[in-house]
Structure formats: C-alpha cells, structure tokens
Amino acid sequence: MSDQIDVHKVARLGALAVSDDEVAAVGQKLNAILGLFDQLAAINTDGVEPMAHPLDQVQRLREDVVTETDIHEYVQQIAPKVEAGLYLVPKVIE
C-alpha cells in the first residue's frame, strides 16, 4: 500500500519549500512514517463507520445576534504588514 511519497507534491500542498538537497532525506523519513501505516490495511473494518469525533454529540447552534465589535486597530498591531486597515500581501494576480 505504501507508495513512495512525492515530496514535492506534499510540500506544495502544505505550502512548504523543500530544497533539492533535502528531498532525499525528507522523503526517507516520510516514507518510514508511511510504513507504520501499512498495518492499518490488515485490520478488518468492514461495516465500521468512520469516527470523526470521540463523543456522539451534535452541533449546537448559536442565536443570530451580533456581539462582536470592531477590533481591527487592536488586532492589526500584530500583523506583519497593514495599510489603510487592509492586510497587505504580495500582489494577487488572477
């Protein structure tokens, strides 16, 4: 089951850079981790529902009432780059 991991692909999905000289070492560790997962395939889970949450709870609903206030000046103190109330990022090209 454990294919060799495509390091460049998973790095791209995670928005991480892996340089060419790191690829082999990173890939070797990732593949070792994937190797641990092989035993999952051996377990019979026929008819077993996937379990996403430990408790059988259901989603609680919040009343549709505004309680939040304008905090932009405060929270933008910790932002890397802001101007005119906007978060600045390198130009978005579509």
Binding site: R62, D64, H72, A84, G85
Partner: peptide, 20 residues
Amino acid sequence: TNTKIFSAASTAFGAMPNTQ
C-alpha cells in the same frame, strides 16, 4: 443573517475594511 455563519460578527455590507 445578522451574523456570520461561524461567528457573531456583523454581515452588514459596506463597512470600513476589516471592521467586521
């Protein structure tokens, strides 16, 4: 709605940037 889907911030249109 008055508020966002997952937070109690206002959804009113046209406010100054990031104030909501």
